[in-house]
Computed example of a mutant assay.
Amino acid sequence: MSENKEIINSSKAPEPVGAYPHARKVGNLLFLSGVGPRERGTKKIPGVELDENGNITSYDIETQCHSVFNNIRYILEDAGSSWDKIVDVTVFLTNMKEDFKTYNRLYALYFKENQPCRTTIEINCLPTPIAIELKVIATID
């Protein structure tokens, strides 16, 4: 008996930066690839200012958080799931000391009704010049 392993790409979330889909459905679980704050169809990253060499000169973690959460919502909805069906979140921050407090406050607002399991990890950098990325698992009917 083979399981259904459906690949899902959102028409609203930013295009993946590598050879991976936005999500995969396996049984009644939806696994999202890492999602950052980029905007679809543009190189613009909300809340990030870059110099001419592509290096971060300044960033606003609050703006990035809102954008990441919106991108996740787009993928979930395009896949046939929803925000309230998120069961697990892994968060990658590039500056835990400076950004955790703001991120944690916003996270509490977005996940007030639904409180999935969560792991937050500080990492050195991400593949694009962003300060936050989320990896999400949700249920899907």
Rank of each mutant, 00 (worst) to 15 (best):
T42S: 14
T63D: 03
N55A: 08
L50V: 02
T57H: 01
D78K: 09
Y74L: 12
L93P: 07
N114D: 01
R38V: 05
H66I: 12
D78E: 08
L50T: 02
S67E: 08
Q64H: 00
I86Q: 07
M96W: 07
V91C: 13
G54Y: 11
V87G: 06
E98S: 15
I45K: 02
F100W: 04
E52D: 15
V87L: 03
D60F: 05
S82W: 01
H66Q: 08
F69R: 00
N104V: 10
E62V: 00
G47Q: 04
K112E: 14
S58A: 09
R40P: 15
N70V: 10
K85M: 06
V87N: 14
S81R: 03
E62N: 04
W83M: 10
L50F: 11
F100M: 01
R40H: 13
E39G: 10
F69P: 07
Y107C: 00
R38L: 12
G54E: 10
E113M: 03
T94F: 04
L109V: 11
V48W: 09
Y110S: 08
H66M: 09
Y74G: 10
T94V: 13
E39L: 15
A79L: 10
V89S: 14
V87M: 04
N71G: 08
K112S: 15
P46C: 13
T102I: 15
N114C: 07
L76Y: 14
E52Q: 11
Q64I: 03
D51S: 00
K97W: 01
V91R: 04
D84Q: 09
K112W: 11
S81P: 05
F92W: 08
K112I: 12
N114L: 02
G41C: 06
Q115V: 11
Y59P: 03
N53P: 03
E77C: 05
S58P: 08
V89I: 15
G41D: 11
I75W: 05
D88M: 08
P46E: 07
R73I: 15
N114P: 09
H66E: 12
K44R: 12
V87R: 10
N95Q: 03
G47V: 07
D60S: 03
I72V: 15
E39N: 14
Y59V: 04
L50Y: 07
Y59T: 04
S81C: 04
L50G: 02
I86H: 05
D99V: 03
K43W: 13
S81K: 01
K101V: 00
A108H: 04
S67A: 14
R38C: 10
S81M: 01
V91I: 14
N104K: 10
D60V: 01
T90Q: 14
R105W: 09
N55G: 04
L93R: 07
F111K: 00
N71T: 11
G80I: 05
D51G: 06
